[in-house]
Design a protein around this nucleic acid. Structure first.
Lengths: 215, 215
DNA sequence: ACCTGAACACCGTTCAAGT
DNA sequence: ACCTGAACACCGTTCAAGT
């Protein structure tokens, strides 16, 4: 009979991510991750000291997947590509954002992430102060956007927005401005919430470019 | 002997918030909330159908505390005031942001919030499309900023940033750009991460004002 | 060295019982 | 009508035991 591959912390973290992708972070328990690997819950403790450590590793696993810029990349394109990558990685594992608030210690993946983004901006000629402003603004925007997106009551794209608007229409009497915005914006059927991401990102990049030129 | 005040869903939600403020969202259990009120866990079920419903109510409770603009308020000041209020409310109850991702159904408080913000922008003359862009950009920025802020490994203000930088300095060899930014930005001792909030917010408001003028 | 299984103190929730 | 207490199926984690 075929031997099971060795249990390693990498395999455990990947299994935990699979469980979370399927059922949300609440579905991740030592027992469920164990059974994902065909192993008892207690076996995990030989590779990872606690559930808290497993969650920390899970957060690192997600942030480690975000594509990072090289110092020599043209800054504007690099920032947009990084933002797109961060958004798609976080949107694929939305439970990761919910974890951020409760685990304050930044791991190597997050520190590396900060370092590479700042590296690109500094190399492009941003002052350290402006680079810090730029990074914290872009990052806040990306995190917040994905957070908003993940808590939307519909799955973006595929015209689901219009469907949702129709569903909620009856209860919209109490929210006249919201109703008006939704109606107008959905009119024509070409709207997708997804487009909002680049709209806001461009707005921020334009403003940064202006500050950069003035500096 | 003094009778205890009637158990109501409002008192239950307030007790749950107190427990969360003290020990984080993980500390909120039917039993801990019950004991906060001097009551058995099961008593709660006579007023709130499930723990999930309690968490929904908790999210609503937080968002209901954010100060909302009047339609006639000057838009730029109103947006900044709203962003400041959202930030201080969310920073006071940081567990609320971590909850957002896992509870997709927006309650009345959140819908009202959206309605009032859009109302101010529309009344000021923003097109529904631009108002939607503006709102989603500002909101994403505020959420993301608080999320970043809450996961900082130090409590902002009080010069704690410098203290932290000194602590981490040894492990900074692997992150040269991050080290350089930190060093430069902390130099002089006047830096506080808190200032970053208005820096990024101003940047966004400037860009929005420009789009508004062009519209 | 690595994996297991019983045990303990928790958790959300059901249900029958008390006032 | 509202509150309780026992019970059930979970959970993280300890520890002694197996290979």
């Amino acid at each position: 009979m075929g031997r099971r591959p060795q249990l390693t912390s990498d395999r455990i973290v990947a299994a935990a991510a699979a469980v979370a992708d399927r059922g949300g972070i609440a579905a991740v328990s030592m027992r469920s991750v164990g059974s994902e690997l065909g192993v008892e819950a207690m076996s995990i403790y030989h590779h990872i000291p606690s559930k808290d450590a497993l969650l920390d590793a899970l957060a690192e696993w997600v942030f480690g997947q975000i594509e990072l810029p090289e110092p020599s990349d043209p800054w504007r394109e690099a920032m947009i590509r990084r933002a797109d990558s961060a958004r798609s990685v976080l949107a694929a594992h939305p439970w990761a954002l919910g974890m951020m608030e409760s685990r304050p210690a930044p791991g190597p993946a997050l520190l590396q992430h900060h370092d590479r983004v700042l590296g690109c901006l500094l190399t492009a000629g941003f002052s350290p102060t402006l680079a810090t402003h730029a990074f914290s603004t872009i990052d806040a925007y990306v995190y917040g956007f994905v957070l908003t997106e993940s808590s939307l009551p519909f799955t973006p794209g595929e015209g689901a927005e219009a469907e949702f608007a129709a569903e909620v229409a009856p209860s919209m009497e109490d929210y006249p401005y919201l109703a008006r915005s939704l109606a107008d914006v959905l009119d024509g059927g070409t709207y997708a919430f997804a487009n909002e991401f680049h709209s806001g990102l461009d707005l921020i990049m334009d403003a940064l470019q202006r500050r950069f030129a003035e500096q």
